[in-house]
């Protein structure tokens, strides 16, 4: 038995579990079967949205199938490699706010932010925007800006609450900007999305000179690299 299943109106179901790894396990099981009624899976932290073909039969069949899933029969998930993402913290815009709210110096904020390995728990808000967690205890608790910025530069690294993220595309945004990566995280023209749910990420501090050297390079896709090596 999985934890709780509730309907998303007449479009699908949402499954809630007690920890994030159970969500990935359920996803793995569903993707392996790839049932014909399935149109989309949307994992986000402790929930998994399961969208189905728009008819009564699909919705009912899906419910029976999801009821039969078990989070107990976990196979061991091989941890993905840690993806290192360069970040120039000199490009912060909200350092003052962050330090005031957390009662830390910005050097302490950088040390805390760059030593943690984060997991991508959800992708949304805009294409390829990774919701990553969780911040170390000392960094938890910054609030969103009361008025979001009209435009945040792509590559901006941000924190709020228990989460950190990177804006892959220029968008309005209300998270606290802590630095910027020179790498491109999303290429819509090539359908290139190197960060996926379950990936592990660590930020690597760089200076402005290194930022300029790396500016405009694509974040490598470790799946593609592994696939090439395997051939």
């Amino acid at each position: 038995m999985v934890q709780t299943i509730k309907p998303i109106g007449d479009q699908g179901w949402i499954i809630y579990t007690q920890n994030e790894s159970q969500i990935r396990e359920l996803m793995r099981q569903i993707e392996q079967i790839n049932p014909p009624w399935l149109i989309d899976l949307v994992p986000a932290y402790l929930s998994l949205g399961v969208f189905v073909q728009p008819d009564r039969n699909s919705l009912e069949t899906a419910k029976m199938y999801l009821d039969s899933l078990s989070i107990e029969q976990t196979v061991e998930i091989i941890s993905p490699p840690v993806i290192s993402i360069p970040c120039c913290y000199e490009f912060q815009l909200d350092g003052g706010r962050i330090c005031q709210q957390l009662q830390l110096t910005f050097e302490e904020v950088i040390a805390e932010h760059s030593q943690t390995i984060y997991t991508v728990y959800a992708i949304g808000f805009c294409p390829g925007f990774p919701y990553m967690g969780y911040l170390s205890d000392k960094l938890i608790g910054t609030s969103r800006l009361s008025t979001p910025r009209k435009q945040v530069l792509p590559g901006s690294v941000a924190i709020t609450g228990r989460q950190t993220s990177i804006y892959p595309l220029p968008r309005p945004g209300g998270w606290n900007l802590i630095g910027r990566t020179p790498l491109i995280l999303v290429d819509l023209h090539k359908n290139y999305f190197p960060l996926r749910i379950g990936d592990c990420v660590q930020f690597n501090r760089i200076d402005e000179q290194e930022f300029r050297n790396l500016e405009g390079e694509l974040l490598p896709d470790w799946r593609q690299i592994q696939a090439t090596k395997g051939q």
């Binding site: 149109i39 989309d40 899976l41 949307v42 994992p43 949205g49 969208f51 992708i123 949304g124 808000f125 805009c126 294409p127 390829g128 925007f129 999305f193 996926r196 749910i197």
Partner: peptide, 11 residues
């Protein structure tokens, strides 16, 4: 176009 909501892309 479905199948890409897990990347933040609505159908």
């Amino acid at each position: 176009k479905t199948g890409q909501r897990n990347l933040g892309i609505p159908p």
